[in-house]
């Protein structure tokens, strides 16, 4: 489903290239839930962003359902993000000007795959039924992250990418959000790639891939 081969990415810092990924190889099969772990600065988030087509890489290859991401223009990368990927951020990144209900439905409507029945069921599953008319600023952190999860899942993407989705939440709330995420990923038969620092969370997924100094390494 997802194949990453010899991926390289550097950032310019003080005029010097700073390598962040140094030949990453990774393969994820359909329906698999993979945890991406590693110390700070190891390149986890960068790898996630490259797979989400949010950024371009210097060398190597990323193939998503057989489609090569290298060389895609801005529009094609936007199409890919809109139609095939759902991203969950640590900071929730909800749209403050839209109500909870509108935030939940936003990406599905954007992708042209809005399904009212599925949306209603999803809202109930996330426990957000009574909150749909509220504004994001009126929700707790856990509630906001549930909206972010719902938004990413609503369009039934093939691949869900989560960047430390519980990093801003307490353990109990984080655990509940994780339960929901894993259930919904399973229900929609999506593939999950999740960046996390938590060994406990990583243990709940099918497999764990560890990054160290920009390369996949054995634990």
């Amino acid at each position: 489903m997802l194949t990453v081969t010899d991926l390289h990415k550097s950032f310019e810092t003080a005029g010097q290239p700073l390598p962040v990924l140094r030949g990453v190889d990774l393969a994820v099969t359909r329906g698999e839930c993979v945890a991406l772990t590693g110390e700070s600065g190891s390149g986890k988030s960068t790898l996630l962003h490259l797979i989400a087509a949010l950024d371009t890489f210097d060398a190597g290859s990323i193939r998503l359902d057989g489609q090569e991401l290298a060389g895609l223009n801005d529009r094609a990368r936007a199409d890919l993000r809109r139609n095939r990927v759902g991203v969950i951020f640590q900071q929730f990144n909800l749209i403050p000007s839209l109500s909870v209900g509108d935030n939940l439905a936003f990406q599905a409507r954007l992708a042209g795959r809005f399904d009212a029945a599925w949306q209603a069921r999803l809202t109930e599953r996330l426990g957000l039924g009574p909150l749909t008319d509220r504004w994001p600023e009126q929700l707790s952190g856990g509630q906001q992250q549930r909206v972010a999860v719902g938004r990413a899942i609503a369009a039934r993407p093939a691949l869900v990418l989560a960047d430390e989705p519980t990093g801003n939440l307490d353990e109990a709330t984080g655990g509940a959000v994780m339960d929901l995420l894993l259930d919904l990923v399973a229900e929609t038969q999506a593939t999950l790639l999740m960046v996390t620092h938590s060994a406990a969370l990583a243990a709940r997924l099918n497999r764990r891939v560890h990054l160290s100094l920009g390369q996949v390494s054995a634990l």
């Binding site: 949010l54 801005d74 936007a78 890919l80 809109r82 403050p96 936003f106 990406q107 954007l110 992708a111």
Partner: peptide
């Protein structure tokens, strides 16, 4: 940027 970046991440081009 904080208001626009999520939309971009969800598949809108910068030009759009």
């Amino acid at each position: 940027l904080p208001s626009l970046a999520p939309l971009w991440a969800m598949g809108l081009t910068r030009a759009a």
